[in-house]
Amino acid sequence: MGAGADARTTAGLETGVACRSLLMEMDWQAFALSLRLATVTTAILLAIAVPLAALLVLGRSRWLAALEALATLPMVLPPTVLGFFLLVLLGPRTAVGRGITALLGHPLAFSFNGLVVGSVIYSLPFAVQPLVAGFASVDTALVDAARLLGAGPVRVVTSILVPLARRSLLAAIVLSFLHTIGEFGVVLMLGGDIPGSTRTLSIVLYNQVENFDYAAANRTAAILLGMSVVALALIYSNAQRHGGASKTQERGARRA
């Protein structure tokens, strides 16, 4: 029994040491940068994706199919290709790049803001697709009713589509966030590897593996994995709570 307790203490100590070393040797700068990038990107994506998804669902123009294809393109495009295009576009060779440089005083490429631009484009489909699916599942009779009662497009979206598709909204937020945390190709192409500015966790992981520092790589990978698991657990527990409640209500209504 004494030996067991000892073993437990030792194991506890070892875990403690491992945790401490994980915390001490973590690249907190990269961690914070990844979080910041993902937060800013998600916020911008929501501001773009909600109106875009509403337009795709409610609009009548025949150009919408092309627009939807364009919004889905980053999903199938290799990230390095996207990163390369953006690097060229935002660089000094194009009028756009020169214009932005003149405006900001520095080029967008190899800067945090450049990463934000790349991340927004790269994760756009992951914000738009769940919202399109969610908005499309809202009964069109409800949209008609709102329009008849004088609601314009903005009010239809904010008072009907978004509240009725809030699970899709949550999915869009979490997917955009995680997709941005995990992106690598675009960041490497467009941002390079500047500590505190463009060196995100996934770049740190790559560097660690390249240096054969597998222990450190393990820690970084564990952090990335942990963040994904926690975020997904959040979505699903939330979906279960809300979904469970609304399903019960629906069943009750059907019975009535």
């Binding site: 009964d139 009779a141 409800l142 008609d144 009713a145 008849l148 009907i160």
Partner: peptide, 10 residues
């Protein structure tokens, strides 16, 4: 318009 389906906002 009051349609056949009441379409109340749930």
């Amino acid at each position: 318009l009051v349609a056949q389906q009441p379409a109340l906002f749930p």
